[in-house]
Amino acid sequence: MSQDWQFVAIFLILSPIFPAAPVILNHLLGPKKPNPIKQQTYECGIETVGSSWVQFKVQYYIYALVFVIFDVEAVFLFPIAAAYGQLTLFSIFSVALFIFLLADGLAYAWGRGALEWI
């Protein structure tokens, strides 16, 4: 197995080279005449008003939260799906219960209106 992951490790180490080459080449080839106007942040033709910090909706946070729950669920479900051939009917129904409980959570969030984009 380490043999398999050797490829991934090499990939991880080598892959920054591929985006780095064009970016560095760009840095070398491109003109360098910076001035304050040019480096201003872009905002539809007018100067930037205030800092870029804006109050964000709690909605984004809720989506991320629900996602975390489902992500953890996936970690459980993937090995079970891979072992599907060796499972008994009892196991299948315990998986169904597992999924049902999570669907319950989703239904709660739905009923509470937490999935609504406001």
């Binding site: 064009p22 760009n26 080839l29 491109g30 003109p31 360098k32 910076p34 304050p36 201003q40």
Partner: peptide, 12 residues
């Protein structure tokens, strides 16, 4: 074209 563009980092 992309390669010979100026490499800008915005202020801040």
């Amino acid at each position: 074209k992309l390669l010979i563009k100026e490499d800008i980092t915005p202020t801040g």
